[in-house]
Every structure is written in C-alpha cells, then in structure tokens.
Nucleic acid binder design. Structure first.
Lengths: 144, 144
DNA sequence: GTGCCAGTTCAAGTGAACTTGAGGTCAAGC
DNA sequence: GCTTGACCTCAAGTTCACTTGAACTGGCAC
C-alpha cells in the first residue's frame, strides 16, 4: 500500500517539509512519485515512529540514521540502548531533584529565594551539575 | 569584594566568552573595569548559579533574564516555579517510561526489535508524545 | 619604557533540526 | 484546454546558546 506525502503528514503528524528533510537525510525513503508528488510505503509510518522514539530517547538524527541497516531495517545496538537507558536514569534523578527543589521554592515562606536554604542548596546542585541533562530535547513540532 | 573575569570563570566554571555573552544579554553585570578588564562583584557567582539552575530546570536564557528584577535581585514567580515543577514531573514520567522501554529492548530476545511487542508499544508512545521533553536541555560547557 | 599576554571589541561562524520563500510543475477538476 | 492548488526544488533563513577569529589595548614585570 502506498500513500502520498500529504497522507503521511496527516497520519504521522510530521510536516511535509520535515518529511522531505528526513528523506534528504536518508532517514526515510519515498518509493516513487505520482507526477512530482512523493509516494511512500505504509512502512514509513513505523519508521517515523522509530525516529520519534530515538529522538525522544535523546539520540540525534544522525545517531538515529545510523540505527538503520542499509536495507532499511532497524539495526539497534542493544548496548547503546542500555547506555542510553543509564543516561536517562541519571537525567531523571537530576530532574527529580530539580522538581522537588522547585516545589519547595514555590511554597517557601522566605521573603526572597536567596534567603531560603533549600533554594540555595538547589542552586549549588544546579551549579555543580551544570549541563548534565539529555543532550538535546526535541522541540514540539507545531504546538510548541 | 570584586574579582576579575578570569577569577569568575575559574570559580564558576563558566568560560569568559560565556560571561561576556551573558553580560551582553543582561544576565549578569560587571561593576567596573581595571583597564579593559571586567570586574565583578562576588555576587555574580550566586547569579551564575541561579542561571545554571534556571537552565537546568528547562528555562531559556530569556526566561531566566526575566526572572531578575530591574535592580538585579531575583524575582521569581512562585506560580511559574510550580508550573515548571509540574512540567518537570511530566517529563520525568515520560523519561522513566522511555528508560524502562529501552532497558527492555536492550534485553529483549526478539530477533528484531520490530517484532517485540514492548518495543512497538514504546514506539507508539514516542510517536504520540513526540516532543514533550523539556524545551531545551543545556549543553555541557566544556566536557562535551 | 617596553614587551608580553590576558584581556578587549565586533562580526561572523557553529550545529542541530527544521522552516520559509521564490519560482516552477503537473494531475485533476471544470 | 485551462485553471487551480498542492506539491516540487534549492537556497537561504531561523533559533538558541554559545564559540571563534582578527585586530586591538593596557596593566604589570622586567
């Protein structure tokens, strides 16, 4: 079954411009044209889901691209997955600390946050662990 | 007590180029010069920690800038903090699901990930929630 | 007093992931 | 057969958070 680019966009929520961009980057492949119009196999939807998954897990597009074998089938390195899971775990811990710190700061009765020991502690943690969150978070595609 | 830019960089771990950039963006302010050389009040270190905190929590530099009153004192909206905490909480939940999914996929015996029901479920979740992670994650400053 | 070098300025570059704009094409509907 | 409009290409622009490069300055050590 083949669908055109508009249909792919509709079903996946990925804008056509992004689909073309992904094709150029060899993340997806169209299987033909009707006139100028790209045609895709339905499989592309799985592929896009896989790309979304990779992105959500913190892989860059290039990394995701490397996860496809030349034949187009996913070739996912289990060690990479485990490593990424560990990285996510560290991120999660940090974010939880941050969340709790923010919650406290939001409820804290100190007149200025700078006088709140909890807040100062949070600040220290943030200053220490500067930039330990996931490499790059995806941006909301249209609703952001 | 005043310290020069090199000292600020040394104590905070923030490169001098970034400090100049932050000054230009009005995130920090130097209090004078010795020759050309910027001098800062020790307070700048608190300020930088606060910036790091905001960034780590997912605020953009512009958002962070808006959290300082014109006099330079932090003016942190408690409702914004609470909202950010909630957002972080959602992010954390998503990342935990992702982490567990990755862990499973890494250990999964299915010959191809596409045949693994867990993996497919994970894919669906990622495709649905595309781009729901924090707006922007900070990059590691030097350690890349 | 003079040379060094860490600082300075300003403009431009980087990289990721797209988006936008200008100008062109073509299948389909009337 | 002609119009329409969604798609096409290719280049350039956008955003964010910085970094880099070239050309310059000036306090400090000697």
């Amino acid at each position: 079954m083949t669908i055109d680019i508009a249909e792919v966009a509709r079903r996946s929520g990925v804008p056509a411009s992004t689909l073309r961009f992904y094709e150029e980057k060899r993340l997806i492949a169209s299987i033909g044209r009707r006139g100028l119009r790209r045609l895709f196999d339905l499989e592309v939807l799985d592929r896009l889901a896989l790309i979304a998954l990779g992105r959500a897990a913190g892989f860059s597009l290039d990394e995701v691209a490397r996860m496809f074998a030349p034949d187009g089938r996913p070739r996912i390195d289990r060690r990479k997955l485990a490593a990424k899971a560990d990285e996510l775990d560290r991120t999660v811990r940090k974010l939880i600390a941050m969340r709790d710190g923010l919650r406290h700061a939001a409820a804290c009765p100190a007149p200025s946050h700078m006088e709140c020991p909890h807040f100062r502690r949070l600040m220290r943690v943030a200053a220490l662990g500067t930039a330990r969150a996931p490499k790059r978070a995806p941006r909301a595609p249209r609703s952001g």
